Computed example of a mutant assay.
Amino acid sequence: MSEILRFQDWSDPVPAGDREVVSRLPEDDDGSRPPLLFVPGMGHDGWAFAEHWLAHAASRGFPAHAVTPRADGDLRAQAHDVVQTAAALPRQTVLIGHGTGGRVVARALGRYPARAAVLVAPVLDGWAALGSALRGNPAGTVPALWGGRLRFSARQLFGPALPAEEATAHLKRIGARPRAELFGRDTLPAPVGDPPTLVVGSPDDRVVRRPALDKAAARYGGAPLLFPGMGHYLMLETSWQEPIDAILDWLQKQLPAY
């Protein structure tokens, strides 16, 4: 698969595109922690990580960056943007993708030798995610099947502990017209260098259900790390600190000699 991807990049290269990077750096970066590159999914940009997770990771000594791949790009172009951004960082990088950003990271892992990877509520199976969306929010989902805007609901994306006013504010910034390829299933490449990979999610997620989390984790040889009571957007929940601390703790155990 990697050879096929390399040939395609040579024969049909991804054109240059704009991408936005938001960064939060430790006050004293001694080089003992790898950079983290967060990749948002469909409907939101780097701001979703900048709300809480970037600064918190930096406070624990990790240089933290969030890249927003080109909005009009397909999955191949977005994975290219992630690889290019990671390669420009000073040290071998940890890739962290949320939602469909997890699918972008899974593709990027076939081209970039990441130090480690974390897939947060990853949408690796578009059909399963579409089925969940149609069951949970048919009125907001059906228009997207015909090129319209995908309209999410607070109940669909967030846990019950998040105050209604915060959920409403986030919803105003979330939304997208999904590409048709997101509704299908992808043949994902094997990761280059076999990096340790963690799948994180919630058993109460209404977008990525528990069976999808189990399947994603099994693909990378493990079990999902679960946070009950939270929704799809773990990084925006009231208890946002729990999953990011667990991710950083896992990284410190996996990379003790970094």
Rank of each mutant, 00 (worst) to 15 (best):
F7C: 01
D9L: 08
D12Q: 13
A16D: 15
S23C: 10
E27K: 13
G31A: 01
S32G: 14
R33K: 15
P34K: 08
P34R: 08
V39N: 06
P40K: 03
H44G: 03
A48S: 15
A50M: 12
H52K: 07
L54P: 10
H56K: 09
F62Y: 15
H65M: 04
V67G: 02
R70A: 14
G73A: 13
A77S: 13
H80F: 12
R91M: 03
I96G: 08
G97M: 01
G99Q: 05
G101W: 07
A106S: 15
R107L: 15
A116F: 10
V118F: 09
L119I: 07
A121H: 02
P122E: 06
P122T: 03
D125Y: 01
W127A: 15
S132A: 15
A133M: 13
R135P: 00
R135S: 12
G147E: 09
F158E: 02
P160F: 07
K172W: 00
I174E: 04
G175L: 05
R177D: 01
E181M: 01
E181R: 00
F183R: 12
D186N: 09
P191V: 02
P191Q: 03
D194R: 13
G201K: 05
G201Q: 03
P203D: 05
V207P: 08
R209Q: 12
R210I: 13
D214E: 14
K215Q: 13
R219G: 13
G229A: 07
H232M: 01
H232V: 04
Y233A: 12
L234R: 03
E237K: 07
T238M: 07
W240G: 00
W240T: 00
W250E: 11
